[in-house]
Computed example of a mutant assay.
Amino acid sequence: MGEPFIGEIRMFSTPVHMLEKIGGWKDIWLPCDGQSYPTNRYPALYAVIGQIYGRPNAYSFNVPDLRMCAPMGASLSIGNLGSKEGSNSVTLAESQLPIHTHSIQYLINANSSSYTGTPGSDVMLTRLNAPPLTYSGNMLLAPAFITGGEGLENYMDSRTITSYGQDQANIAGHENRQPFLVLTFAIAHDGEFPQN
Rank of each mutant, 00 (worst) to 15 (best):
M1A: 08
G2A: 10
E3S: 15
P4Q: 11
F5L: 15
I6A: 01
I6D: 03
G7W: 06
G7E: 09
E8W: 05
R10S: 05
S13A: 11
S13T: 13
V16R: 11
H17P: 00
H17N: 13
K21H: 11
I22W: 11
I22D: 12
G23A: 09
W25N: 04
K26V: 10
D27V: 06
D27S: 03
I28M: 03
P31A: 07
G34P: 03
S36A: 15
Y37M: 11
N40K: 09
R41V: 08
R41E: 04
Y42R: 00
Y42C: 05
Y42I: 01
A44I: 01
A44L: 10
A44G: 04
L45V: 12
Y46K: 09
Y46V: 07
A47T: 10
V48F: 04
Y53L: 04
Y59D: 04
Y59G: 12
S60F: 02
N62C: 12
N62A: 12
V63W: 01
V63M: 07
P64H: 02
P64G: 01
P64I: 02
P64T: 02
D65P: 12
A70S: 09
P71V: 08
L76V: 12
S77P: 06
I78Y: 06
I78H: 13
G79N: 14
G79C: 13
G82A: 00
G82W: 00
S83W: 11
E85Q: 15
E85D: 14
G86A: 10
S87L: 12
N88K: 08
V90Q: 11
T91V: 07
A93Q: 15
E94R: 05
S95H: 15
Q96M: 11
L97H: 15
P98A: 14
H100V: 06
H102Y: 00
I104A: 08
Q105P: 09
Y106V: 00
N109Q: 12
S112V: 14
S114A: 09
G117F: 14
T118L: 15
G120I: 02
S121G: 14
V123H: 05
L125Q: 15
T126A: 13
T126N: 14
P132I: 11
Y135H: 05
S136P: 02
S136A: 08
A144F: 01
F145L: 14
F145Y: 14
T147A: 10
G149T: 03
G151M: 04
G151A: 05
L152A: 06
N154E: 12
M156K: 08
D157A: 13
S158Q: 00
S158N: 01
R159S: 10
T160E: 07
I161Q: 02
I161R: 10
T162R: 03
S163H: 14
S163N: 13
G165R: 07
Q166G: 04
D167N: 14
I171D: 03
A172L: 11
G173K: 01
G173C: 01
G173M: 00
H174L: 06
E175S: 03
Q178F: 10
Q178K: 13
Q178T: 08
Q178L: 06
P179M: 09
F180Q: 00
F180Y: 12
V182H: 02
T184W: 03
T184G: 01
F185V: 05
A188D: 01
D190N: 12
P194F: 05
N196I: 10
